[in-house]
Computed example of a mutant assay.
Amino acid sequence: MSSSERIDVRKPVGADLFISYAWTSEGHRKWVRLLAAQLKTLGFDVLIDADVDYGDDLNGFMRRVADCKRVLLIVDQNYVARADTMPESGVGKESRWIAEVYEDRDPAWLSTLFVDNAHCVRPAWLGDRMPKGFDFNHSPGSQQEFPGVEQIEDLWRWAAGLPANRDSATSIATLRERATRLEQQDLRSDPAQWRSPDLVGETHFVYEDAPQKIFRWGVGASEFALQVSGCSYNSVYVYKDPIKAVGLIRGEDVDDTDLAQHLAPGRSVTPQVGQSVVLMNTHGRLAVVDILDVQREDTSSSRYVPPFVNFRWRVVESS
């Protein structure tokens, strides 16, 4: 390949990993595909021969390889022989093209995995370059009867760009702590946290955490939705958007049969603590919401206090 045809390899943006191997036997081919499947299960985007169309476009193949973030050579004895003595074989061509790219890459871009290659012999084109290698060889009578249990972790750590030294790895305790934070955050925004099937109830509603700032209760024709946002230190806006109508109940001891008269034509009402709101859903049923407490967002203290509204609801049976 001439210098004018050389591909810009400075910014790998393709698959996570390209695997180069020889079709030594059907069993070896299946082993490589199982390895690729394992890495895909771990979340890596892996390219093997079946994913690449060699065709006559050498530039096209080179670009697919050059764009990969990592390249792994599965080096058995047959792979070495083909790379060294059979330049027109698939392995021979891949070796030539990978060598061209490797000159402009960080050494960590390429690694070798040795299997059925007891002396870990490398292809001659690597010369005195010694990329990281993974020994998957099996020696009869060795204590390690099934090589690959620990090596697979070393392999994915290399593919992910993590330090090889596990001492610098993130501790299990830290990983659990992070997972707990993520789970708590997911729970806070889960709509299931902000609804109740009860027709009568009371809740502490941290509305900024809820999707669309909505709390729902009841089921079917008796389902209601309360959407709020902050107003002043002792009041909130209550919107009709998720239902049909809202209204501020004025006066005390209002009879349930008169609640519909308090519905307003506007988009929202602004109840204060101690006041009540009437809601009408899309089925024409009514519910009463009593505003018990309101808290505005407080960022002045050392600990953040989110805005919330405490309220009590009841679906009007006679409606």
Rank of each mutant, 00 (worst) to 15 (best):
G161W: 01
V254K: 09
S318Y: 02
N117V: 07
P12M: 00
L199M: 09
L199A: 13
M130F: 02
D241W: 11
Y79G: 01
V46E: 05
D293P: 00
L47D: 09
D135G: 07
G27T: 07
V273Q: 14
T299A: 07
F311Y: 13
T270C: 14
A210I: 06
P307D: 06
Q295G: 03
V316L: 07
A159F: 05
E177Q: 10
G284V: 08
P191E: 06
V115A: 09
K213D: 09
V46H: 04
D76L: 01
R70E: 00
H262T: 10
E145K: 15
E202L: 14
I249A: 07
R285P: 00
D135Y: 06
P265N: 09
A173G: 04
K132W: 08
V277R: 10
N78E: 11
V91G: 11
L175S: 04
V46D: 05
S319D: 13
W158G: 03
I74N: 05
W217G: 02
G247I: 06
R64C: 02
E317I: 08
S3N: 02
I48Y: 15
S139H: 15
L126R: 00
M62C: 08
R63A: 06
A192L: 12
L259E: 07
G266A: 08
F224R: 08
F308V: 03
E177N: 11
T85E: 12
S20H: 02
G230Y: 02
Q151R: 13
P12F: 01
I291N: 01
R6V: 03
E252D: 15
E150V: 14
R157Y: 00
R129S: 09
G60H: 13
P140I: 01
S25M: 07
D106K: 03
R178F: 02
L110M: 12
Q144H: 09
W194S: 11
H262N: 13
E153T: 08
L187Y: 04
P211D: 04
K240I: 00
K240F: 04
T112P: 01
